[in-house]
Nucleic acid binder design. Structure first.
Lengths: 240, 240
DNA sequence: AAGTGGTCTAGACCACGGC
DNA sequence: CCGTGGTCTAGACCACTTC
């Protein structure tokens, strides 16, 4: 019969999308059976192996659980550990309104240490964007982003107060972000930070240095974040 | 022909093991082709789908990279991000000698907040183990572990100065640790910590609270760690 | 053009779970 | 017992990369 490939999609992906949509719509809840391999194969008129491939993929993504001899069931909603999310996404995920104040958006050069983090030549021009993150009127973080000026020159003129940097990068430049390496430690607030974050000078702050890579493994953004510990905790899950 | 299942192993796992062993032995290096699906199928006398299944599994585990139209190649050795490792394992992995000083190992009770982290009744008895971690003579962390006294009562009499807690748990109690949830923030050193870590009072410290779960998802150890930031940085990789 | 991975078929037997 | 997922066969066509 050969794959019909309506939608241009492989059969196994079509099956996955049907199941995902049913979960999304609320037709299927955690613990509900999603249908056996044989059922799905019959319903979608594909072979067993193809239905199986579809379910195996969903299991790998943590969407379903397969229990030998029993069936395949919708997995309980996962807490997203170790996920790379923009500030906007993080806030919305917690049901809060993202709110930040732009401190500066300008060109810099001769910052060889920062350039090195982005794998650029030592004296490369870079865009620097500094923002205070806040909940209501209370500041809880200062985040400073650096990007290559060559690639993202007109970023400084964009409305980053209202748009997520991630979104701008994707829509304006077609850059998809893939993963990030973070370096976490603690430091004391200097005078300026103390002022911006409304804490005493020398107060302990959580410092996160983050290099965000595109899906093509190119270092794209360097972020230096300083967080008030009583207002921001980092959650990590480690696996054996 | 039916699967012969010598070794009692499925064919695809046998194929995986053969490849993994060749990498381990140094016969195959990063970038080397591991053989095409068709080659492997012929060599192991299995069908294409089975050889394919073997390679797909290795790819999921990050051991090989598959490039359509080109072939399947040994993946570059991966840095172990977000891995749950004992202090001993971490030190050995960096080529350093693990060294720690036991401050106390005793029974406690009436610590409802800690008991709650381990999903125990509020007034449960627990084992408390407090250790200073150091490189040479320089202290860089204080780690305090809590475990259920019911299950691990004779832990206090064991030689934790020489043995990894992870190892003791596995060998003595048959407990296999699976994953951990960490909560990271910053705090200031109180008088006692300042003393133990040889820093000024109020100095910023990285604080990591960790609940370590067994492979059966049972909360087993609660660890409170305080780290000197200039001597200890946390590395995390986040994925999109 | 030859070879590779990606998708797919239409069957098969096995071990295991729940009734 | 019957249905489930887990493994496997012996073929096939497609899109792609490499030469």
């Amino acid at each position: 019969m050969l794959q019909a490939r309506r939608n241009g999609l492989p059969a196994y992906k079509r099956i996955q999308e049907v199941i995902l949509k049913r979960i999304e719509k609320g037709e299927l809840h955690a613990g509900d059976p999603v249908g056996s391999e044989r059922e799905l194969a019959r319903a979608h008129r594909v072979s067993l192996m193809t239905a199986r491939h579809a379910l195996a993929g969903l299991e790998r993504d943590g969407m379903v659980e397969r229990r030998p001899g029993a069936g395949t069931f919708v997995a309980p909603p996962k807490i997203h550990f170790n996920k790379l999310m923009s500030y906007t996404e993080q806030m919305l995920g917690r049901g809060m309104a993202p709110c930040s104040k732009l401190l500066c958006a300008k060109m810099i050069e001769k910052e060889p240490e920062i350039a090195a983090r982005l794998a650029l030549a030592p004296n490369s021009r870079m865009v620097k964007i500094e923002r205070v993150r806040q909940t209501q009127a209370e500041p809880f973080a200062v985040e400073t982003c650096y990007l290559s000026a060559d690639e993202f020159s007109d970023l400084i003129s964009m409305s980053l107060a209202t748009n997520s940097l991630f979104t701008v990068l994707l829509n304006r430049y077609g850059v998809n972000l893939g993963y990030a390496d973070e370096q976490v430690d603690a430091t004391g607030a200097d005078k300026r930070m103390a002022d911006l974050l409304a804490v005493p000078e020398g107060a302990p702050l959580l410092r996160i240095r983050q290099v965000i890579y595109s899906t093509t493994a190119k270092p794209t953004i360097y972020v230096l974040g300083l967080y008030r510990p009583e207002r921001h905790t980092l959650f990590i899950r480690r696996y054996r």
